[in-house]
Design a binder for these strands. Structure first.
Lengths: 128, 128
DNA sequence: ATAAAACTTAGAGCTAAGGTGAAGTCAAGA
DNA sequence: TCTTGACTTCACCTTAGCTCTAAGTTTTAT
């Protein structure tokens, strides 16, 4: 199976423009073209795009993703290097998770404080 | 107690430049000045700065933080509004947490896949 | 009292990650 | 054949969030 840029855009919620931009920047590898020169994405491309999206959403900058994708282009020789990048990113995500949890706590506490103040004001108003 | 901009910068890991920038943009309220015009931060300012940092780190854009801070300047009348903003942000953080967890899964799986490939190659090499 | 360090404002410049628009090519249907 | 719509490249525009510079003033330590 292969897909046009529009199909991929719909499926991934990444605009056609951004798909081209990613390719130009090396964040995606060179995508195969049809006779007329239009991009034809394979299932493998889609799979890679899924990973890229995940890396991006966990805070990896595009230039680091490009490095990863370039290594991938160089074949199995770079497997260990790519593994190390993923390992580092895993650690990274773990730290973000922990930080996010702490921030959740903080917002929750502040919220409780505000709710307390509001309850007081409520009580105050009722007294009169 | 009051603190100079440098002390606050050291304590919060937010550069003096950024502290001034935040104030100019209304992300921080107008900070009191010394005789000569230098900023003197109070403990209350520091507390607010902590909340601001938390909101920012959980993805709230500066302009929304500004709105929050402006409401705070308007006094207790806006308590309920501010509570609602915090409530929404709490929900927001929860969603991010969930998403981050899913991304952690994805990276972990991919990593396992890579480790599998590497183990194979290892075995392959040993056979010879 | 004076020198060095830290402060002030105003404003320009930078980076990341896109978005926009022009100008042209190509393929398929009425 | 003509038109419609998706595709191409290329160059410039936008936004968020800083980051730095310049030129001058204040604070602090001796």
């Amino acid at each position: 199976m292969s897909y046009t840029i529009k199909e991929v855009a719909e499926r991934t919620n990444i605009s056609a423009h951004v798909l081209r931009y990613y390719e130009k920047e090396g964040v995606l590898p060179r995508i195969d073209r049809s006779q007329g020169g239009s991009r034809r994405y394979t299932d493998e491309d889609l799979d890679l795009l899924g990973l890229i999206t995940c890396l991006k959403n966990t805070g990896m900058p595009l230039k680091d993703i490009r490095t990863f994708v370039q290594l991938r282009e160089e074949g199995p020789v770079t497997l260990a290097q790519r593994r190390d990048i993923l390992k580092a990113q895993q650690q990274n995500v773990l730290e973000r998770l922990e930080e996010m949890r702490m921030n959740y706590e903080k917002v929750t506490k502040k919220l409780a404080y505000y709710d307390g103040l509001l309850a007081e004001r409520q009580a105050e108003g009722a007294k009169k």
